[in-house]
C-alpha cells in the first residue's frame, strides 16, 4: 500500500458519509477507480457501517429512557424506614445473633415477674403460720417492715344453763 493509499484510506469514512468537499471527493473517486486495495477497504467500511445501522435500527427490548427515569427517581428519593429495616434484616448473619438476643430478652421478661413476686431477700419474713386457737394476721411494723404476726384468740364458749 502506498502513502497515497494511506491518505485515501484515512478519508474513506468521510467519503462514505458524504462529508468530503467536492475537490477531495473527486480525488478519492479517481484513486478508487485505479486502486483495488482501496476499493476493498471501502467495501469493508461499507459493510461495517451497514451492520451498525442495522443494529441501531432494531427496536430495543428495553425502553432505556423509561429505565433511566426510574433509576434517577430512586437515586434522588430517600429510603423509608421499612426499606432500611428490610435492608438491615437482609444482611447475612443477621438472624443468629438477633435470635439469641431475643431469647435472652424473653428470658429476662419471663423471669422478672417471678423474681419480683418473691419476698425480698433483704428482709425477714414469714414463710408459714398456723394457729389452733383463732385467726392469725401477718402484718409489718411501721418503720423497718419487720414481720408482725398477730394471733386473735377465739373467745371462750358461753355456758348455757
Amino acid at each position: 500500500m502506498t502513502s497515497v493509499c494511506d491518505e485515501i484510506t484515512y478519508k474513506l469514512s468521510a467519503y462514505l458519509d458524504n462529508e468530503l468537499p467536492d475537490e477531495e471527493k473527486s480525488k478519492v473517486e479517481a484513486h478508487l477507480k485505479a486502486c483495488p486495495s482501496c476499493q476493498r477497504s471501502l467495501q469493508k467500511l461499507k459493510k461495517s457501517s451497514e451492520l451498525i445501522a442495522t443494529a441501531l435500527s432494531d427496536r430495543p427490548a428495553v425502553d432505556f429512557d423509561k429505565a433511566w427515569e426510574n433509576i434517577e427517581a430512586r437515586i434522588h428519593s430517600r429510603p423509608t424506614i421499612w426499606q432500611y429495616l428490610r435492608a438491615f434484616m437482609a444482611r447475612p448473619g443477621f438472624w443468629i445473633p438477633a435470635g439469641a438476643v431475643g431469647a435472652v430478652a424473653m428470658l429476662l421478661v419471663l423471669c422478672l415477674p417471678i423474681y419480683k413476686s418473691q419476698p425480698s431477700a433483704n428482709l425477714s419474713h414469714v414463710e408459714s403460720v398456723s394457729s389452733k386457737t383463732g385467726r392469725v394476721m401477718v402484718l409489718q411494723t411501721a418503720k423497718t417492715s419487720q414481720p408482725l404476726i398477730w394471733i386473735m384468740e377465739s373467745p371462750p364458749k358461753e355456758k348455757h344453763i
Binding site: 433483704n122 425477714s124 394457729s131 408482725l148 398477730w150 384468740e153
Partner: peptide
C-alpha cells in the same frame, strides 16, 4: 404450746440481725 398442746406454729426466714414479732394472747 399451751400445757402440752401446740396452739401456734410459724416458720420464719430471718436475715442476719433481723427480727420478728408475735403477739396477741391476752
Amino acid at each position: 404450746f399451751k400445757n402440752h398442746t401446740e396452739i401456734f406454729a410459724t416458720t420464719l426466714l430471718m436475715i442476719d440481725h433481723g427480727s420478728a414479732i408475735i403477739g396477741g394472747p391476752k
